[in-house]
């Protein structure tokens, strides 16, 4: 093809590069990013909103039921005419389903019932069939399951978060390769931003918790070490 119409050259060129886990915070703030995204065509903006409500924890309503979430995700997939976005969304939902299974099994739950709607895609049946296996029998297709299970069992929440973000980052990077200035590129950028922001928030929360822990320890020791007030 001589020239493929790419309407978001200016927008993409105006966004700073995001280097995952190498920075304390995304190089562009949320409000500035949202301001830049006003350049999106109305249909694209609506599609991005729906994608974020399905993929990004910041935008997902935690109160909604699994079945309702799955209905919305499947409706979105049916509406997606862009193969890269559909593939990326399917892969992310599959990742999330496997992690949900790991967590449920770690909590001592049995395999979900056959009619229960709790996960996405063909992997659901395979998870149920391989519930007794350490990697659900999916280790070849999803080599990250083994380290994720070990991290989960070790109680290393931050390590697990980092591992899952790395897997999700690598997945979306693979789909984003052929897209530089089109709508897909915008979506993948926002997803990268969302992951970097989540990690930065996680880091900040962990730092705050550690600081409070140290503060408590210091205050507990304070009466014995501080001189009497005059």
């Amino acid at each position: 093809m001589i020239w493929r119409g790419e309407p978001y050259v200016t927008l993409m060129a105006s966004l700073p590069a995001i280097r995952f886990l190498s920075e304390k915070a995304p190089p562009i703030g949320r409000s500035r990013l949202m301001e830049r995204l006003k350049d999106l065509a109305p249909d694209d903006a609506e599609l991005l909103r729906r994608l974020l409500e399905t993929v990004s924890w910041r935008f997902i309503d935690p109160a909604q039921e699994d079945a309702a979430f799955l209905d919305r995700a499947e409706a979105l997939l049916a509406d997606l005419t862009r193969p890269a976005l559909a593939a990326a969304l399917s892969e992310r939902l599959t990742l999330r389903t496997v992690v949900a299974a790991l967590r449920r099994r770690h909590a001592g739950e049995d395999a979900p019932g056959k009619g229960e709607r709790w996960g996405f895609g063909p992997v659901v049946a395979r998870l149920r069939a391989g519930w007794a296996l350490p990697d659900f029998g999916l280790g070849a297709a999803h080599p990250w399951i083994a380290p994720a299970r070990e991290t989960l069992e070790a109680g290393d929440a931050k390590g697990l978060e980092r591992l899952l973000l790395e897997v999700a980052w690598a997945q979306q990077a693979r789909h984003a390769e052929a897209h530089e200035f089109d709508f897909e590129a915008v979506v993948f950028y926002v997803l990268r931003w969302s992951m970097a922001d989540r990690w930065a928030q996680y880091d900040a929360d962990a730092a705050r918790a550690r600081f409070e822990e140290l503060l408590d320890a210091a205050l507990a020791a304070a009466p014995a070490t501080m001189p009497e007030a005059a």
């Binding site: 050259v9 200016t10 927008l11 993409m12 060129a13 105006s14 700073p16 200035f181």
Partner: peptide, 17 residues
């Protein structure tokens, strides 16, 4: 025209940042 327009749009975007 197309080449300059595409590169020019990128230049404008880069100037914002």
């Amino acid at each position: 025209a197309i080449g300059v327009a595409v590169a020019g749009q990128a230049a404008i975007g880069a100037m914002l940042e």
